[in-house]
């Protein structure tokens, strides 16, 4: 892949990111007077004036946007109206929790989705195929928060249904912010195992939709590949079925699947907002819902910006990865 191509793709993402900042800022400021949101509707006029002065709400909107954008570029997302703590600092604790949850869900979705898709493609039209397709259709239709509650009922007493660790376990993830990785790095496998038990239900609930999408795509992609001439040749040469399926067919069928895996990360970030609410998972989603209920517009602005920017970055990475996997795209 040429450097020019990478530069072009990266440059194309810049206007999108700029638009994202503009939209996020506009939305946060369209909700009425932020000074009233902070001090309440019954606050005295003098208090409101003082707040406007303190936060710079009395400056022209464009100046406010420029100043906010400058802050964003430096990693400063403003100060929470409620806690007075910098939003970037609050999100620094919440983001790793969401990334950990979304990554675990993506792993589950990839392993189960690709596995089910391969099984279904080997016997198209069979009972197994029908079952996989039905499961995948149901998977994309069940609201993630409802599925979360069903899992809570189903595994009641066997798996923990909320939080990241038991209340009596004290552990501060200090390196990556992700409990599982930090516990392993700190040589505490007991804490890692306990955290894994807490992670399992929310990750499974969140994984359902991507798993269903990946299973259907894998089946379609494998069916197309399995009827290709080179697969027929491989079979005619007498290669074992396992080798033909896993080494020859799957490798080629994987191209669209890898792309979809990346794109599903965005779905997971969106779904995390709802899943985290069900399982009291202290990630960006729960932070955002709390910020909305508290009318903390700086927090809302920061959380949405972080999720949208991650989404844009993941899409860009997938785009670049795709051209790497299939060089024909780069020359198209």
């Amino acid at each position: 892949m040429t450097g020019t191509l990478i530069a072009r793709r990266v440059l194309m993402a810049v206007p999108t990111l700029f638009g994202v900042t503009l939209l996020v800022f506009a939305m946060a400021h369209a909700g009425g007077d932020p000074a009233v949101a902070i001090a309440g509707e019954k606050a005295p006029r003098a208090t409101l004036e003082r707040i406007r002065e303190e936060y710079g709400f009395n400056r022209p909107v464009l100046v406010q946007y420029g100043s906010w954008l400058g802050g964003v570029a430096r990693g400063d997302l403003g100060r929470s109206y409620k806690t007075r703590v910098p939003v970037a600092e609050e999100l620094r604790q919440a983001v790793p929790a969401t990334v950990e949850l979304a990554t675990a869900a993506l792993l589950i979705a990839a392993i189960c989705g690709i596995g089910l898709g391969i099984l279904a493609s080997l016997r198209p039209g069979s009972l197994l195929d029908l079952a996989v397709m039905t499961v995948s259709l149901v998977g994309v239709s069940v609201p993630v928060f409802f599925l979360g509650m069903v899992l809570l009922v189903a595994f009641q007493g066997r798996l923990p249904g909320g939080g990241m660790l038991p209340l009596d376990v004290e552990f501060e993830p200090s390196r990556t912010g992700m409990v599982l990785i930090d516990a392993l790095l700190a040589g505490k496998p007991g804490i890692a195992a306990e955290h894994l038990r807490h992670l399992l239900l929310p990750a499974c609930a969140l994984a359902t939709i991507p798993m269903a999408v990946i299973a259907r795509l894998t089946r379609a992609s494998m069916l197309e590949t399995l009827t290709s001439d080179y697969i027929r040749t491989a079979r005619a040469k007498g290669l074992p079925s396992r080798t033909v399926v896993l080494k020859h067919a799957l490798r080629n069928a994987l191209v669209p699947i890898v792309t979809t895996l990346g794109l599903q990360y965005g779905t997971l970030l969106g779904g995390a907002v709802l899943t985290e609410s069900v399982f009291a998972w202290p990630g960006v989603g729960q932070y955002l819902v709390r910020a909305i209920s508290e009318q903390n517009f700086v927090g809302i602005q920061g959380a949405i910006l972080v999720i949208a920017a991650t989404f844009v970055a993941v899409n860009l990475a997938v785009d670049l990865l795709y051209t790497r996997i299939d060089p024909r795209i780069a020359h198209a």
Partner: peptide, 10 residues
């Protein structure tokens, strides 16, 4: 593109 940069529910 800008609108699609947000996960729908978000």
């Amino acid at each position: 593109d800008v609108l699609l940069a947000f996960p729908g529910i978000l």
